[in-house]
Design a protein around this nucleic acid. Sequence first.
RNA 1: GUCGGCAUAGCUCAGCUGGUUAGAGUAUCACCUUGACAUGGUGGGGGUCCUUGGUUCGAGUCCAAGUGUCGACACCA
Length: 939
Amino acid sequence: MKNNTNSESAAFGNPAEGKGSDSLASKYSPTEVEGKWYQYWLDNKLFSSQPDDRQPYTVVIPPPNVTGVLHMGHVLNETIQDILVRHARMEGKNACWVPGTDHASIATEAKVVNRLAEQGIKKADLSREEFLKHAWAWTEEHGGIILKQLRKLGCSCDWDRTAFTMDEVRSESVIKVFVDLYRKGLIYRGVRMVNWDPKALTALSDEEVIYKEEHTKLYYMKYYLAGEFTIKPEDEDGLNVIHKDARGYYAVVATTRPETIMGDVAMCINPNDPKNQWLKGKKVIVPVVGRIIPVIEDDYVDIEFGTGCLKVTPAHDVNDYMLGEKYNLEAIDIFNDDATLSERIAIAQQAALAENCVSNEYIIGLEKYVGIDRFVCRKQIAEDMTEAGLMEKIEDYDNKIGCSERTGVPIEPKLSMQWFLKMEHLANIALSPVMNDDIQFYPAKYKNTYRHWLENIKDWCISRQLWWGHRIPAWYLPAGGFVVAETEDEALQLAREQSGNAQLNLSDLRQDEDALDTWFSSWLWPISLFDGIRNPGNKELKYYYPTADLVTGPDIIFFWVARMIMAGYEYEGTMPFRHVYFTGIVRDKLGRKMSKSLGNSPDPLELIEKFGADGVRMGMMLSAPAGNDILFDESLCEQGRNFNNKIWNAFRLVKGWDINDDKQPESACLATQWFSAKLRLAAEELADDFSKYRLSEALMTVYKLFWDDFCSWYLEMVKPNYADGKAQPVDKATYEATLQFFEILLKMLHPFMPFITEELWQSIYDRKSGESIMRAELHMPSATDDDRRLCADFETVKEVVAAIRAVRSQKNIAPKEKLVLEKIGGQEEAFQCSIIKMANLSAINNVSEKSPASVSFLIGTTEYAVPLGNLIDLDAERKKLENELEHLQGFLASVEKKLSNERFVQNAPAAVVEMERKKQQDTLSKIAAIQETLSAFKG
RNA sequence: GUCGGCAUAGCUCAGCUGGUUAGAGUAUCACCUUGACAUGGUGGGGGUCCUUGGUUCGAGUCCAAGUGUCGACACCA
């Protein structure tokens, strides 16, 4: 009888390339299979989850940007999540993977601005409402593309739960939290030095600034001494460095930003700097500007840097700002918001000149710089100063420049009115759960990074001068002051109370124009996805929260992970997730980060087209230990595809078998016993790998289990013989055992390769409509000592077979030619029939002495021989044996050295000493056997 | 500058509380096509475990210093 399978599957109907006698193609073609089963999973709602009495397993997706497209980083991240989710589901847990997208305030707004610019529309010409209309249109057009792409990858997200950080639930949650934190006194508004992005025209948080190494110049400028002064005789002590030229005495200030001299309000020296003692108490003239400024003294100044003279520009440098606060200096903001020079520079110059009469030789009218860009100005002013004799010298200088993460332009430190969140309390509640492993990081090394950040945390600037995002729920009163409220109505009521003016109308109030930092919504994600902010303690939240695993990149540990932990403890009193799996960065095989500009990032959808989603997933996972960077190479996907093909062909083999009612042959019976033990051992290994989040090792475990143990050993052992020009039938017991093994293997493989495993699982047995491997539970009995013993014995069998094959290979004996094996002085071999089959022997003879013309080898302490008659090359055999003897004698020497060392025998554990003694005995008997053979050759 | 990680086969990495003369995958080489699969099979070669010291009966593993490399944070105007 022909075995009976459900043969409606798409991949079956394509016999085109098959060269076998059955209807299955010899190559697996994933394309149709993948589409078909994904639709099946959707149709049968197999991804969806509702609270029930099973144990929950929750994962929230790190929401990709709503307008983003799938890149290799996503493939890595989402594959890992899908593996974890599918694995948990098959463990019988109620797995829920919640998908969604992020509005990505600044990134999306930048894209919209660019698109509008292409159409000739300037953002500045639009009202807020008009702009938002465009932004929503863009979101609807591009939003969700990435979610569709995740389906191609096989992601088993509960799509009915798809959320967006700016949908109603999430928006209301953000506003509610803002109001709550404001009322707790944790949110405040004030003028501070912030990171200003002059291109996006918004403030940024410290985390959104990245430092880039750049080759710049260091400009040494002359600040001539002003007014009445004397150079005291003791200043001419040789320690002071006094500059003087035809115009007079001057100090030299080194700066990388000569244009900021327009905001100079003081010069600062270190009071302990011997070379600048002569400047104490003096006044100097700011070159070009003509303003006369005092020389102040502060320890902050580094004596070693430049000339030890620091120009103080409180409006444009964080440290200068602090000096300004300390010494009560004026801050002159010289820039417009877009970092062009402000007309204030000219006004300030006029005021300064009106106050003090300064010689024209130090001055250039600043009007010429008004309105030009900061970098153009830098170049210009440096040239002008050189020409005017105000520049001492210019040197090359390597500098690190803070740049905007999004727009890439250098950040301008700027004083401005912003909203801040106090972080001290939140950092306090978030630190210990990670340090004491309530929340576990994989790999744990990121605990350090985490602690360092929390211990040095600064307040979080949460306002952005953007429109795309959650608008800050603060309303300003006509007479000054503001109220913070969840709704306009509430705001009005509060405003009336606060102002004592009951006649106040909504139109009298003006809502803050700013939006909130994107991460101010992301940090609520694990809670807000279950509506836990608006609806605290609801059933879903109670069931799904805390979530199980978070999978994300270490680059957003501060942006996101740390802040989710803060919000989790602040709003739920417990962790948002129990484990954090940090992925590495996907690089190309040369180790370069994948980027659009380098063009070294493959398109994941093209890869899927080429290798199948299962192949790509496997390629990604093969080299992806947690936290290590992935050096991605297409050949890994090829390996994945090859593995798919191997699985496919193993299936083809089994499906092609005819079955009869014969008794199971002993070799098949033994093979079945062994493989069943092997499966239990492998299942334990797999569970261990998963428990440690060692997913690439888990994959390698199943890979080897399937390819080596199942295909190369088990199937080869049970495979019926070929006779009379065709394969013989297989007995029913073997066939059924094989199908059961196959099913277990498919389940083990499923989390990694969902599509092919579903395809085959559906085909090895008849399945009911709606059934799926996704929901098939995998429970393996734990391995016994007998299993371990059996598998260990079988390892010896493998060694014997390999040794015989090696003999064939060396002697050029065709695999088809049957050989005889002699076992010297041993007992009956338990796996005798397995060895006969796998090594293609005609017999195994137990003999007391081996045939004279034979090749012998040792497995353990047992000697085997293959009689070869005149094929034998005695010289070569002798040489080989002599080499082995030498090796064994060296080994023996090292063992005996240990054993003759009294301190070893005394100090080492008894078991270790015992082991060494056994090694000594074994080696001695091996040596004896070889010597005997060698002397037989001589005789 | 401060702190941290890493350094094992050509490549990517395992190697747990120290205990066989160090493993895997891949690449490479040789041989093998009527038979599930050449996207395959069989066999082989390939290592100063970065260097130097130390602890120990014993070090790839622990300690110290150095070198290289990657990262985080801090920054010098």
